[in-house]
Design a binder for these strands. Structure first.
Lengths: 217, 217
DNA sequence: TCATTCACACAACAAGCGTTACGGTTATGT
DNA sequence: ACATAACCGTAACGCTTGTTGTGTGAATGA
């Protein structure tokens, strides 16, 4: 029935992997059907056979990347705080593979922010990640490894920290080798650990203070 | 000498501002000379008159954005920890203008990561920001408002936190309104404040632990 | 075995891109 | 007042892009 005895879906995976390679090397600006075809050692005919349009190609590649990232072998996690640490480490570009994934991910933000539908999709995705982290924070709190405090807020902070570290490490891998990333993360977790349960020991003026006005059009 | 009595440089600023508007609305994928010209109410002839090529147009727009961001009115900063807080707040998308700037900035990461020269430029830029933060951290430490500890590391952590919060706020402005961003930042600063000077109260296996191998090709 | 169907190469398409050339208009220096 | 040069609209160029159509060889099912 087919030249390659091939699964239809398996070929689509091959194509998506070629998309990843092109994206990791040249970004979205360099993502053309011909570039993907060349990377695959094929022609655009193959691509259009498996994907009706470029948009579908990209969507499938990103979906597959997310899925694969979610289901990739995660590091051995203990319980409580240790599990939180493991989850955050799994986000960081500590390996070549994770670096490529993160690079693609960061690159896709341009496209995502320009498309409201995609943007909402991403927001949902990050919100989901936050609830996952929230559970881990709660568990760590119940074991007494983290002081009390709104677990959702702590999780949001942790996600911010990890996300920002990803970006920095991508731009300056020399300044942020794996070990340093882990050190910085541990610094962060340590500061969470020793956080007094009583809120804010110092008082500051509200955000709107200063010469810059608060948002709102 | 000219149709508009115009400063040459002033017109170039006008053009760059049109570039910002197009970028904020449609991202780099939607940045075409014709789109910029339309946004400006002019034609591509004007653009090519002021910029020899598209690349120069983009570079100038981003340079100007960085310059303007650096020199925009900053919120009243106190001393020490308060100054650090102010500097970090100035990064966040708390105003409509800052949101647009950050959105453009994040979008440019795709292009930047694909170009080694630009990438190095960005890395230098962030490194510079880190040294600026490092000074603020040192000052806060000398006033006893922050526990001792490598100020450079604390600054790197703070920058990561702010950067990640920027990204989250861009994708989910509803979940991260200005006040919440400030709360999360204050949470972070509070945790720094109460950080015990003695290092890491908990012990963990090294990074390379777990099923995932460490980087290095 | 023969018709069919899948898998893909190949080639051509229109649309949109950055860039270039040109020409008319307007303000300026002399 | 006149030459000059800046300003910028107009239009065309060649190229690349995503997409479409056609054709061919291999595998399949009857």
């Amino acid at each position: 029935m087919a030249r390659t005895k091939g699964d239809h879906e398996a070929r689509r995976r091959d194509v998506s992997e070629a998309v990843w390679r092109v994206l990791a090397a040249h970004g979205f600006a360099g993502l053309t059907l011909r570039a993907v075809a060349a990377e695959l050692g094929a022609t655009t005919g193959l691509l259009t056979h498996y994907f009706p349009a470029k948009r579908d190609l990209v969507v499938h590649a990103l979906d597959l990347l997310a899925e694969r990232t979610a289901s990739r072998p995660r590091r051995a996690a203990g319980q409580g705080l240790s599990a939180l640490r493991a989850a955050l480490l799994d986000i960081l570009p500590l390996t070549a593979e994770a670096t490529a994934s993160n690079r693609i991910w960061v690159s896709s933000w341009d496209t995502a922010l320009a498309d409201p539908e995609l943007s909402a999709d991403y927001a949902r995705k990050y919100a989901h990640g936050r609830t996952r982290l929230t559970d881990l924070v709660s568990a760590a709190q119940q074991r007494g490894e983290l002081p009390s405090g709104d677990p959702e807020r702590i999780a949001a902070g942790a996600q911010s920290f990890a996300l920002g570290l990803v970006v920095q490490a991508l731009f300056d891998p020399a300044a942020f080798p794996p070990q340093r990333q882990a050190e910085l993360l541990d610094d962060y977790l340590t500061s969470l650990t020793s956080l007094a349960a009583a809120r804010s020991p110092y008082e500051e003026p509200p955000v709107s203070a200063g010469p810059v006005a608060t948002a709102a059009p």
